[in-house]
Simulated scan of single mutants.
Amino acid sequence: MIDSERVEVPTPDGPMPAEWFGPTDGSVPVIVVCQEIFGVTDYIRRRCRDLADAGYAVLAPHFYWRLSPTGDAPEIAETDENALQQAMGLAQQLDFAAATADGVAAVAYAREHGTAVGLVGFCFGGGLAFAIAAQAEPDALVSYYGSGLPGLLELAPRVTAPSLHHFGDADSFIDADAQARVRDAVTANTEAEWITHPGADHAFDNDVAPWHHPEASARAWQATLRFLADRLPAR
């Protein structure tokens, strides 16, 4: 198993804690992984290791660091009782503009430590990655069911990186009409891909959450690796 090491990403307000997976010699692209609403959980770490196994270096910023006086970012186990309510409470406390700026700083840090930079975001992180991409111009973006995307569509013309968007057609949080608006906005970029996963709910990739859809998760991950390999070859 690939171990992670703690690193610190410089920001104007102090160092943001993050985890680094994979090579540290600057010889490969770096994928900045944007967490789900629950924080940098073991599920997110598993996906980081999967990307490292594919040959990438991976940076997972702890975007909730500003919510703790000590800078130790909270995380919530998806299986805890009332986990979603607790996580939504954290997300509502977060200054989204500050989190976006932290993400831009993470991309800058990744550029200093790799040959190119991609963004991969899940749920809350899918929308956050989109907002970061509008400012930081990564080399590629993958967004899984970005929960904030319906409210971020004015940023779409500024997201010029090749992008891949995954949504389930049974998403309980982003209905078909909202998905259609997002699809129309993001695919105005001719290098954007959109994949709808039949029968999949929101957060279908999270293998410990109640919404997990194994078939959709496997299909989406293979598409993600293909997309990244085409635009950010690691080997």
Rank of each mutant, 00 (worst) to 15 (best):
R46P: 03
L59I: 00
A83L: 15
L67W: 08
Y64C: 06
V120R: 02
Q86I: 09
D102E: 07
D72Y: 08
P61K: 05
M88I: 14
E36C: 05
L59T: 03
Y56A: 02
Q92A: 11
M88Y: 14
T100I: 06
E75S: 15
A156L: 09
D95P: 05
L51E: 00
V30H: 09
E36Y: 04
N82K: 11
L153A: 06
A108W: 06
A133L: 04
F124S: 11
I76L: 11
A97Y: 15
G146D: 06
L152V: 08
A73L: 03
V28E: 15
R66T: 13
M88H: 15
G127Y: 07
A134L: 09
P69M: 10
V117Q: 10
R47D: 14
N82W: 12
D80V: 04
S143R: 01
I76T: 06
C123Q: 08
A106S: 06
C123T: 05
C123P: 06
A140W: 01
G148V: 01
Q93D: 13
C123Y: 10
T100W: 13
G126I: 07
V30C: 03
A57G: 10
A161N: 00
R66H: 07
P69W: 13
G148C: 03
A101V: 14
E137R: 13
G118Q: 06
A108I: 12
V28N: 15
A110E: 09
P29G: 03
G118T: 04
A98E: 15
V30Q: 10
Y144M: 07
G125R: 05
A116M: 00
S27N: 10
C34P: 00
P61M: 13
D42L: 00
V28P: 14
D139R: 00
Q93F: 13
I31N: 03
F122P: 04
A140D: 01
P29R: 02
A131L: 08
D50Q: 14
A54C: 10
G146R: 01
A136D: 08
A116L: 02
V104W: 12
A91Y: 02
G125Q: 04
A57V: 01
T160K: 12
Y109R: 09
P74N: 14
F122C: 04
L94Q: 11
A131G: 07
A140G: 00
T79K: 14
N82F: 12
A133V: 02
L51K: 01
P157K: 04
G39K: 06
V30D: 04
V30L: 10
G103S: 08
V104G: 09
A106V: 00
L90H: 03
G103P: 00
M88L: 14
Y56L: 03
L94S: 02
F122K: 06
E36G: 04
G148I: 00
V107Y: 08
V33G: 05
L149D: 09
W65D: 13
Y43Q: 13
G114P: 11
D102N: 08
A129V: 01
E154A: 13
D25F: 12
L152M: 13
A97V: 15
A97P: 12
E81A: 09
V58M: 05
D95L: 00
E112T: 04
P138K: 02
D25E: 07
V40E: 03
Y144C: 05
A77F: 13
Q135K: 14
G125M: 05
A110S: 12
S68W: 04
V33T: 05
P157D: 01
V33M: 02
P74H: 15
G55F: 10
